[in-house]
Computed example of a mutant assay.
Amino acid sequence: MSADEASWDDVDGYLIDRLVHEDEALVQARASAARTVMPGAAVAPNQGAFLSLVAQIAGARRVLEFGTLAGYSTIWLARAVGPTGSVVTLEIDEPTAAVARENFERAGVAGTVEQIVGPAIDSARALIEAGTEPFDLVFIDADKPNNPHYLDAALRLSHPGTVIICDNVVRGGAVADPDSDDPPILGTQALLDRLGTDDAVTATALQTVGIKGWDGFAIAVVRSVG
């Protein structure tokens, strides 16, 4: 770890200690990520709190999440929408989904969360075909090669004013490599290209550093649908 990276961790620790309040359910959910298909991939505590704040600022009552893992971010979002809201979360791996369900019960949000197990793009298309009510906030944090497909589905499941957040769009700076042939990079580049050229959305992206390394997120507001 470089000196810069050590400083990133220290600052994140400082901010989390002072601003983020995890109860035991969140602590256990974060720890249980070790039992999922992608240990260490969950958002950091301050990022979970950020998602919660965005959901509250947006007045979100219906949230769609691509990628559940242990359900750490799901819990933050479910608590933000409250008991009268709902979070639909999509996870491909059943053993991982089972870990998340344990965490939802422990956190007291099982009644707020609807978990759909299977390939996320298939699940999202089923929601579209069923005429599901549009969502107020969409969080995309699943397999990166499918990012443009997830964005397309998210737009079809949105209404004007829907907020879309896409995680891990910087990827250690690799997203800026025009010659990359790495599928996660190509998927992320395609997502950003769509966000930047589609008149139906207004978007930006920010780099982040911290205990999750050098990465970032894109955030968009849907202006029109159809």
Rank of each mutant, 00 (worst) to 15 (best):
M1S: 12
A6E: 13
W8K: 01
D9M: 11
D10I: 14
V11M: 10
V11F: 12
D12E: 14
G13K: 07
Y14G: 09
I16H: 02
L19G: 06
V27K: 15
V27I: 14
A33V: 09
M38I: 13
A42L: 14
Q47W: 07
Q47T: 10
G48M: 11
F50L: 15
L51H: 05
V54Y: 02
A60G: 06
A60D: 07
R61F: 01
E65W: 00
E65L: 00
E65Y: 01
G67F: 02
L69P: 06
L69E: 10
G71V: 09
I75R: 12
L77S: 04
R79E: 14
A80P: 05
V81F: 00
P83T: 14
V88M: 04
T89W: 04
L90H: 08
L90I: 11
L90E: 10
E94N: 03
P95V: 09
T96I: 09
A97S: 13
A97W: 08
V99K: 01
V99P: 02
E105P: 01
R106E: 10
R106T: 12
G108M: 09
A110F: 02
A110T: 10
G118M: 06
G118F: 09
P119W: 04
P119E: 06
S123E: 15
S123P: 04
A124L: 12
G131W: 00
D141Q: 05
D143M: 08
K144S: 02
P145V: 08
N146K: 09
N146Y: 00
Y150L: 02
D152N: 14
A154L: 11
R156P: 00
L157Q: 08
C166A: 15
G172N: 03
A174I: 03
V175R: 06
V175T: 07
P178G: 08
S180P: 00
S180H: 08
S180V: 05
D181H: 10
D182T: 13
P184L: 02
I185S: 10
G187M: 11
A190H: 04
T197R: 13
A200I: 01
V201L: 02
V201C: 04
V201Q: 04
A205M: 12
Q207L: 07
Q207A: 15
G210H: 06
G210T: 11
G210L: 03
I211C: 07
A218Y: 06
A218L: 05
A218C: 03
R223E: 15
